[in-house]
Design a protein around this nucleic acid. Structure first.
Length: 278
DNA sequence: AACAGGTTCAACCGCGAGTTC
DNA sequence: TGAACTCGCGGTTGAACCTGT
């Protein structure tokens, strides 16, 4: 199969590492227009990249909610477990690890976990130990999930779970950080501190809508919401102001409660690699 | 200090699936 | 119906970095 016209390498298309200026251009573009058609992104954003490269950069590096840094032991276990079941389905595995990209997991597997899994298999040849197998229906998986939930409920081992949770959306763009509440969930409050920014529940909904809210039926893509009218001012306001999330200990009607992962959600919203869900 | 070999990770490539016209 | 196009995935590459000698 030949390359499509939009993907054909041309003199115009730059390759290699992205510069901070290019990153900024891409961010600015997506904040302003949202994600609709990647092939048109470089044209409008003034980038000398192809759409595919822009998409990859956004998904693997610029996308809000990405978690950076070392994988926690829980994440390692989960990857090993999932890999046994799913094989090299990195995107499927990534869905279970909020804030991690398939590329990141794939790299981590090839550079570290593959060896560990191999060593582990060798060890199992001489010593039979309960191992993580079918994540869809196993006691081992229940153990993992329960271990997480129990700790969350008790509020213990917050540090270890903190590493399990992704940074909140825009943590890299805004002066916010993860805070784990007593219930083990990361709770944030949108505040209008110092800005006079209207921070009603409606505005908070707009905020979520603007950055990839997906309804329960999953019928609305991030691009749809990005392109909705009325969100631009809010988005610009966010970037221009110290508008941010603030830790909260008790949920109120005007609060948005984020948590991470499809297994760990508070009932209001939860965030995965693909968006923020209700 | 200099070099070689190993490791990491961002980015590229090719392909299949889905969508549009 | 099928060609053209877009998207997303998994495999691979290669530059940068690390480590040992």
């Amino acid at each position: 199969m030949g390359l499509r016209s939009s993907e054909k390498p041309t003199k115009k298309h730059k390759k290699g590492l992205w510069s901070p200026e290019e990153d900024q251009r891409l961010k600015d573009y997506i904040l302003q227009y949202g994600i609709s058609c990647w092939s048109s992104v470089p044209l409008i954003a003034g980038l000398q990249r192809n759409g595919k490269s822009c998409r990859l950069r956004w998904i693997n590096y610029l996308r809000p909610g990405l978690k950076r840094g070392m994988f926690s032991t829980q994440e390692e276990k989960l990857i090993l477990t999932l890999h046994q079941t799913l094989g090299n389905k990195w995107s499927q595995i990534a869905k279970h690890l909020p804030g991690r990209t398939d590329n990141e997991i794939k790299n981590y597997w090839h550079s570290y976990l593959k060896k560990r899994a191999s060593i582990s298999r060798d060890a199992e040849a001489t010593y039979t130990e309960p191992k993580f197998a079918d994540i869809s229906n196993t006691e081992e998986n229940d153990f993992l999930v329960n271990q997480r939930n129990t700790s969350f409920e008790s509020g213990e081992q917050v540090q270890s779970h903190e590493s399990f949770l992704p940074k909140l959306a825009f943590a890299d763009w805004l002066p916010i950080s993860n805070n784990v509440g007593q219930n083990g969930l990361i709770n944030y409050q949108l505040t209008s501190e110092k800005t006079g920014f209207d921070c009603t529940a409606e505005k908070q909904d707009e905020f979520l809508n603007g950055f990839g809210y997906i309804n329960e039926a999953g019928s609305s893509s991030s691009s749809d919401k990005f392109c909705e009218d009325g969100g631009d001012d809010l988005r610009k306001g966010m970037l221009d102001s110290p508008f941010r999330f603030k830790d909260q200990s008790a949920l109120g009607s005007d609060f948005i409660d984020f948590s991470a992962g499809d297994m760990l959600y508070s009932g209001y919203y939860y965030m995965s690699n693909s968006g923020i869900y209700s």
